[in-house]
């Protein structure tokens, strides 16, 4: 069953055609990676899905409902969640409070405290819970934000470069985290440049180029596709 569906989605900024007739179907339960050279329109596509931008034309539906006109917070409440490219944690608040703010709309009291503890353990941030989130290392901030995103128990988790700035070891741990979440039933759409990560988690890959869907398939099919290799080397039109 399709969880998220984009139909002929276009986005212009003035004369700039950033997203060009994108059709994308995300199946319930899959881990789907979105790759493509810089400027391919990946982050814009995320912003369209999240409602930070509204498409110039086309339709976005989630779990069978047309969400094209909905505001961001309303889409989140329907089961979307996101981790931004630049970690968007609440820097001046403690790690624990960051998670509390993410969790408090569905839990309270002892259940809330228990769930915070469980998430802290899952994110390997037990020892840092009283620290200001702004004092965490870059990788820890990424994890904290992933924790805040999954605290909402979303049906679809959007990850914008979840491993940017992480060491290979941290990248691998993040990959395992994503796989565990997926095993528990979460559908994931991730923008990622790190091909080791894509290989580790992706069940399907979509390549975006110049605002259009350029190729789609399993990671092996994508890697074997000479046209994809070519656009990364800047020879798409050669």
């Amino acid at each position: 069953m399709a969880l998220l569906q984009l139909r002929d989605v276009n986005k212009h900024f003035g004369g700039l055609h950033v997203t060009n007739a994108v059709n994308l179907v995300l199946e319930q339960g899959e881990i789907h990676c979105l790759i493509g050279p810089n400027g391919a329109g990946k982050s814009t596509l995320f912003r369209l899905i999240l409602g930070e931008h509204h498409p110039s034309s086309g339709q976005i539906s989630f779990a069978g409902e047309d969400i094209t006109a909905l505001k961001s917070f309303a889409r989140i409440r329907r089961g979307l969640s996101v981790k931004f490219q630049v970690p968007g944690v609440f820097k001046g608040l403690s790690v624990r409070q960051n998670l509390e703010i993410a969790l408090q709309s569905r839990l309270s009291g002892a259940a809330l405290a228990k769930e915070i503890d469980r998430l802290l353990a899952f994110l390997n941030l037990d020892a840092e819970q009283a620290q200001m989130a702004g004092n965490l290392s870059h990788g820890q901030k990424q994890w904290l934000e992933i924790g805040m995103a999954i605290a909402l128990k979303p049906r679809l988790l959007l990850l914008d470069e979840p491993t940017a700035g992480m060491s290979p070891e941290e990248t691998h741990m993040t990959g395992e985290m994503v796989r565990r979440l997926n095993a528990a039933g979460m559908t994931v759409l991730a923008i990622e440049h790190d091909m080791a990560f894509v290989r580790q988690v992706a069940q399907r890959v979509t390549v975006l180029h110049l605002g259009q869907v350029f190729a789609q398939g399993s990671i092996d099919e994508i890697v074997a596709d000479e046209r994809v290799a070519a656009i990364y080397l800047g020879q798409a039109h050669a």
Binding site: F73, I76, F84, G88, K91, G92, L93, S105, L152
Partner: peptide, 16 residues
Amino acid sequence: VAIRENPERAEMLGYD
């Protein structure tokens, strides 16, 4: 205080 720290993140946790 979440809105003070990061309004975009607060909205993306489902708060209007």
